[in-house]
Design a protein around this nucleic acid. Structure first.
Lengths: 347, 347
DNA sequence: AGTTAGCACTCGATGTAGATGAGTGCTAAC
DNA sequence: GTTAGCACTCATCTACATCGAGTGCTAACT
């Protein structure tokens, strides 16, 4: 079976309607609002589209809902970039630069503006020091329950953190872990390091693995973030309460619990590709994100990747608008960085 | 009518039951579980208690619910401090000090532990530099839409922030505002300054007032917080989803919106009295807090007030337990500060 | 005089049955 | 290939009966 012109139009119509109303879309509605044939025809086509996996059916006698596959098709093939009008751009820019004094502040503000425009939850990651690389990692025993975690970077930056252990660790375990961590992380940029999953490489030594997971990992991530000088801002968290998909208190709860794990989010954001990136529902690795879509964009300094900006919302979102706004904002931020370069190292 | 011994016991029983179950308490329940007389007797007493304002009646045929007045009486007169057992103390202390490396971290950790134990939302305010006082405040015009807000403290600390205005301001207005702010704030400690409501004193000049409110105030508060080095941590936000009083999605929404206004919360916390302080429902000034209770405690260095720790939850909370835990935690933090004094100025 | 048993009454919660209507799938005619 | 027509499905709404936890009041008891 083929995706004929008409099927595409119908699919697009269903998506448009569903994104607007959050209600399953029936054949009559489409027939009335678009010149695509009678309800019966539309029904036949919809039935085909369902067979092909683009639509689903909450129950026998209800309208159709787009599947993730449909959104993916829409984003890849059908969505045309929504150009922001000059007024919109001006309004955004005005909003973005009001009350902004330093760049850190601009990033925070961008998350705010983004959440206000999209009515979704927005986040922004401040620029990290990209160039520096990890050199080695060492765990030094202090007493039975305390070790010092030491990170050294190529540029000579050293960070020490004392870590309290849950169980005493043998020197042997510490040695294995130090060696393993150095092996896995050295030569990586600080932000790359955040994206590595070391657990697997430790399978061999259960004790070292347990220790890493329970005691070392949180301090390690925190220290890396600190060396990176990375900061995560979120805004518009309560926007989700306006969305019908979160009328269920449990959904809302899961969402907030997910969003509260800031370390996870930072890590996930950093590991996303450069440029505008859209992940839909199950394409997100995280279980808790499986009925959300995430759109992120990267802003740059000197052509290097440095920070991220994005939104998280239900799969039913205005992909075109959100994409445009996210892009416009990152462009603006990149521009702002260019203008003020050189005078942002004094805090 | 008098609060007889039995009335008190019944009231206490109603409170205890309601705190546990969140359901209105009937006379039979009390009669069965406590040796206080037959259901009929209890009913008579309850009726009296209702007349006196200690109990209310959601509807004719339901059990009784304690009023705020009842909680206040309970907290003031009936509550006996719940001594934590040594095991509990040890568990808390162990939890508190795990993964803690610097004091900033300890405060964050305290909020975490507190929220875990109480199953409520906890917050903690890091220590502010108490001693320093504001000396003068100046607003310097840069261009039509930009002014520089300058704060100078007694100790010579200076903070500048550029502020973008919504409307151009005349030099006259700036002069009035600078003078007024200096008049109101100079001589105050930084934290005192946060508690002052200057708006009233500006009634005379509508333009200055509007400018302050719309443009200056946010930067001003931010700068003060920065000079104070104050940081607000919150934890256990999602705990409220487990409480029946927040099954209503709108209640949950209001709660999160309130809690997200961090600047407000910081300000409110700083202005609370020293020592353990309990405010119940309507006793909280804030509209959005009117069906919450807030318990805070202060931790000290050198006997000076420096930081706050507390929880926020429904008026139906375990006042005795929460109070004990909050107190134990602040004691611990104060102690920790004493031990490490002198080596906490290197970040 | 205080306590208690008894009883009518209230009112939210729960359950059931029918009506409604939006929507489908299928068949047959166009 | 398109469309009208119709039987069927199923969530949602309404009305109504039932249940039961709880009260208030009265009268009897101690």
């Amino acid at each position: 079976m083929d995706l004929t012109e008409r099927k595409l139009k119908i699919l697009q119509a269903v998506i448009a309607d569903f994104v607007r109303t959050a209600e399953p879309v029936g054949s009559r509605t489409i027939s009335k609002n678009y010149e695509l044939g009678s309800p019966a025809t539309i029904r036949n086509e919809m039935s085909d589209l369902e067979e092909m996996g683009y639509l689903t059916h909450p129950h026998t006698s209800s309208g159709r809902v787009p599947s993730e596959k449909a959104y993916r098709l829409y984003v890849n093939e059908m969505m045309k970039k929504r150009e922001l009008s000059q007024e919109e751009k001006d309004a955004i820019a005005k909003d973005l630069y009001s009350n902004v004094t330093e760049l850190e502040n601009l990033i925070e503000r961008a998350a705010h503006v983004l959440s206000e425009i999209t009515n979704l939850t927005a986040f922004a990651l401040t620029p990290g020091k990209e160039q520096d690389k990890l050199k080695y990692i060492n765990l030094l025993p202090v007493d039975d329950y305390t070790v010092v975690l030491m990170l050294v970077s190529d540029s000579g930056k050293v960070s020490n953190t004392a870590v309290r252990l849950k169980k005493p660790a043998s020197e042997e375990t510490l040695r294995i872990l130090s060696k393993n961590m150095t092996y896995n992380y050295s030569g990586k940029t600080l932000s790359e390091a955040l994206t590595i999953d070391i657990i697997q490489t430790l399978q061999a030594d259960a004790e070292a693995m347990a220790m890493f997971e329970n005691s070392i990992a949180p301090s390690f991530i925190r220290t890396l973030e600190d060396m990176l000088n990375v900061n995560l801002y979120m805004d518009g968290l309560t926007n989700i309460f306006a969305l019908p998909e979160y009328n269920d208190i449990n959904k809302a709860k899961t969402f907030f619990e997910m969003v509260n794990r800031k370390a996870d989010i930072t890590q996930k954001l950093i590991s996303r590709d450069d440029g505008i990136m859209i992940t839909i529902g199950g394409e997100n690795q995280d279980e808790d994100l499986s009925d959300c879509s995430v759109i992120t964009a990267t802003y740059h300094v000197d052509g290097k990747m440095v920070g991220k900006l994005g939104v998280i919302g239900p799969t039913r979102m205005q992909y075109d608008e959100v994409t445009s706004v996210v892009e416009y904002l990152t462009d603006n931020i990149s521009k702002a960085f260019m203008l003020t370069e050189g005078d942002d190292d004094d805090r």
